[in-house]
């Protein structure tokens, strides 16, 4: 793990949430072009890790570096401009904005984002519904829109929180295809996912979290061998 390949490096990250101590010193690295998945039971701090990296949780200590630069002192509205996009678990589609307004909401922060024509090619549903209000979209369409608007902005790292939660298998499959497409274009992804089958198809590496800490790290190739033990650990 040489520093040069590291896009995101997190050391000793602590975070407090509504009075509770949620993260107890998370260490993780995401290399350029990699897709890394955080797994773990509900409530172990996966979502909190993403939110603390992004700076949404203000009460945090430790070190977060992106492309070698410290992020801990950067104001929330400047983080995205460094090249990080966040797709929250609840998707965060603005109900009173149209699909198109939602798509154009995140400002372009760097060249190399996916153009609007390509977005509409990747997500034909969104093109069809571009004048609809965000609130009228189905769950699957909302997830597509939440991912699409970040891809358009030109970020280098995508933080993706449980994109497949509650969606039909055919849509989960479609999201998998999209993630492989953007990975082929060099996008780096830090994914939180409960769906093993899905994660195994898109991830290069896994971090296992427990009680606010990263407790194990392994490549996807070891997933099968560890499956029985992981299932037991995760209570699947």
């Amino acid at each position: 793990m040489s520093e040069g390949r590291n896009l995101l490096s997190v050391r000793g990250l602590n975070a407090w949430y509504g009075g509770g101590h949620a993260l107890h010193g998370v260490d993780l690295d995401v290399h350029k072009g990699e897709t890394v998945t955080l797994i773990g039971r509900n409530g172990v701090g996966k979502t909190t890790t993403l939110r603390a990296i992004m700076g949404i949780i203000a009460k945090r200590t430790g070190e977060v570096r992106f492309d070698g630069q410290d992020l801990m002192t950067v104001p929330l509205h400047r983080i995205a401009h460094r090249g990080i996009g966040f797709v929250p678990e609840e998707r965060g589609i603005f109900a009173t904005l149209t699909v198109e307004e939602n798509l154009f909401l995140p400002p372009l922060i760097a060249k190399g984002g996916i153009s609007i024509d390509e977005i509409y090619e990747l997500f034909p549903n969104l093109k069809e519904r571009r004048a609809s209000a965000g609130i009228q979209l189905s769950g699957g369409e909302q997830q597509m829109l939440a991912i699409a608007r970040i891809l358009r902005s030109g970020v280098k790292l995508l933080l993706l929180d449980e994109p497949t939660e509650g969606l039909a298998p055919v849509i989960v499959q479609r999201i998998g295809e999209i993630l492989r497409t953007v990975k082929a274009r060099g996008m780096t992804v830090l994914l939180v996912e409960q769906n093993f089958q899905f994660a195994a198809k898109v991830a290069d590496r896994f971090y296992l979290m427990d009680q606010g800490l990263v407790v194990e790290s392994f490549p996807t190739s070891e997933l099968l061998a560890r499956q029985a033990k992981l299932n037991e650990f995760l209570g699947v």
Binding site: I56, H77, I79, E101, P107
Partner: peptide, 21 residues
């Protein structure tokens, strides 16, 4: 659109890189 979005969810609008303050 920024104003309307910030009315709904100011934190997410800031996360997208817009200076909500």
């Amino acid at each position: 659109a920024y104003l309307r979005a910030a009315t709904e969810n100011p934190t997410l609008v800031r996360v997208f890189g817009i200076n909500v303050p």
